[in-house]
Design a binder for these strands. Structure first.
Length: 497
RNA sequence: GGGGUGUUGGUGGAAUUGGUUACCACGCCGCCCUCUCAAGGCGGAGGCUACGGGUUCGAUCCCCGUACACCCUACCA
């Protein structure tokens, strides 16, 4: 039985790259009939927050990725991790390093320091196995520890040979042991380090397939070494290409803000179906040319074979609000909004309208037909759920806003409208029965009688009734808005001229 | 400094395990439709498949080198 896991660290928000890892793990597990587990890697107590943990749960739920078994919190397993390190020391597979801890500078200097140290070590002929405590007799090591001397625990990496593993995406990966230093398993304050913790937890959770971001690819060799030292079976590994920013740099909150946070998409009116679909296409492609795929279809088609080796760029423009996020994702959301069966769209719609104070229970009962007609009419040109309460507000309430440009162009530009609009209102009121056809007839007759183009009245009506310069076919709008309300808004608009 | 991975039009991706004019989607431009804006239909621009060598009758595909990008290299995760 296949068992995979999603193991985010609860620092900040849920990153879309992490969300994609979750998706791929979920797809893989569900497709293979395996288990999808969740582990919160909250060992960095400084940076971990409850809010972030919540955003992980919310994000997974929003995306529809249900997990199996109990959630594992890594911090709860620290004792086991420590015990594993101690065991390795006892078995002589690891050793206590009594070298005093070297204080490091800030994060920004880490890379420089690494390079500097590497150069210095090369100059001095120091290699990765030169640690003076590596061959310290176990008795002496034990004694010094008992005497209260501080130590870190390091894994004894073999002097010769190479590490090899088969990656499900990138193929055979090899690395000389000489390039891997005796990694620290336990800090001198007793705190287990990442590589140890993941391996221990993955063993405890009986993970069979580790699917995660490519940023872990080279570290996998270290983890394999730990598995071997612990005598545990090594899982299959598969690494996913990274998602980069438009400049091909790292996609980070610091630099790019909300676009990288999954919750942003929920909050800005994305349909989970759509975002999930878009996410799936980042770093993976199905066999055919079909790109629009609901969850169950993604699940059927997903395969590691289709996962790419090269990173994907998440394309958006920080300067253009219309391109606040990836254009294709936005297009896909619009596509889902206008083509999804109404009953599937309804929950999201209801939530959006409720949040905006526009929802009425009648929409699901006595006014259901009207509601359905309205949604079908307006969703055609909407991109996000927010549009229903924004641009679409006039369909559900009277307190909508007028777009200044629309008012200028469609109302104020033609002074005669001040008289024409009330006249039109009168005609509209007399249409019987009132529907799109009779509204059209009334308007066209009125235009002819008044000697003006129908388009003038149509466009003026659009702004009068909806506050906008753009929208659906106007006669349908009259029908939707209704006779009384249409007439009222026409008269009110005349006052604005 | 060392190691790893990668590079197909602006973006996401194809191209039967080398075979004619490099395909699809998003975006962009134009036309049709038209009461606006979309949607839809039709059409178009945009690529010496990073660069340089090789192997081959033939290379996006195989090999070598270069450049660039990203990741790892930490008593961070």
């Amino acid at each position: 039985m296949i068992r995979v896991r999603f193991a985010p660290s609860p620092t900040g928000y849920l990153h879309i790259g992490a969300a994609r890892s979750a998706l791929f793990n979920w797809l893989y597990a569900r497709r293979e009939g395996g288990k999808f587990l969740l582990r919160i890697e909250d060992t960095d107590l400084q940076r971990s927050t409850d809010e972030s943990t919540r955003s992980i749960f919310e994000g997974l739920q929003w995306l529809g990725l249900d997990y199996d078994e109990e959630v594992v919190f890594q911090s709860a397993n620290a004792d086991q991790h420590r015990a594993a390190a101690v065991q390795l020391v006892d078995e002589d597979k690891a050793y206590r390093d009594f070298t005093p801890k070297e204080e490091r500078g800030g994060d920004a200097n880490v890379k420089q320091e690494i390079a500097k140290r590497a150069r210095r070590d090369a100059d001095e002929g120091v290699d990765h196995r030169s640690n003076p405590y590596r061959e310290l007799p176990l008795e002496e090591s034990k004694q010094r520890a008992a005497d209260g001397e501080l130590f870190a625990v390091r894994l004894k990496v073999p002097r010769e040979g190479r590490s090899v593993f088969e990656d499900g995406v990138f193929g055979t990966q090899e690395r000389d042991y000489a390039e891997i230093e005796d990694l620290v398993l336990l800090r001198s304050d007793g705190h287990p380090l990442y590589n140890l913790s993941v391996v221990c937890d993955d063993i405890a959770m009986q993970i069979t397939d580790v699917i995660r971001g490519q940023d872990h690819l080279t570290n996998t060799h270290k983890q394999v070494l730990i598995y071997e030292a612990l005598g545990a079976p090594i899982p299959r590994f598969a690494h996913l290409p990274l998602i980069l920013a438009p400049n091909k740099g790292k996609l980070s909150k610091r630099k790019h803000g909300a676009v990288v946070s999954l919750t942003t998409y929920r909050d800005r009116g994305f349909l989970p179906e759509a975002f999930r679909n878009a996410l799936a296409l980042l770093g993976w492609s199905p066999e055919g040319e079909q790109e629009i795929m609901p969850l169950d279809e993604l699940r059927e088609k997903f395969s590691l074979k289709g996962v790419h080796h090269s990173p994907a760029v998440f394309n958006f423009s920080e300067s253009d609000p219309r391109q606040w996020t990836d254009q294709k994702a936005l297009w896909m959301n619009a596509e889902y909004i206008r083509t999804m069966p109404l009953d599937e769209l309804l929950p999201a719609l209801r939530a959006e309208l409720k949040a905006a104070g526009l929802w009425r229970p009648e929409y699901e009962t006595s006014e259901h037909k009207w509601f359905e007609k309205t949604i079908n009419l307006i969703r055609e040109r909407f991109y996000t759920l927010k549009d229903f309460s924004g641009q679409g507000r006039a369909y559900f309430a009277d307190d909508f806003e007028f777009d200044a440009a629309a008012v200028a162009k469609n109302l104020k530009k033609e002074p005669r409208l001040k008289e024409l609009l009330p006249g039109l209102a009168g005609q509209i009121e007399q249409a019987e029965p009132f529907n799109a056809e009779t509204a059209e007839a009334a308007l066209r007759h009125f235009a002819e009688a008044a000697g003006v183009k129908a388009a003038l009245l149509i466009n003026a009506s659009r702004t009068a009734l909806t506050g906008q310069a753009v929208g659906p076919s106007m006669f349908e709008v009259f029908d939707i808005i209704g006779r009384e309300c249409s007439a009222r808004r026409l008269r009110a608009a005349a006052e604005m001229i």
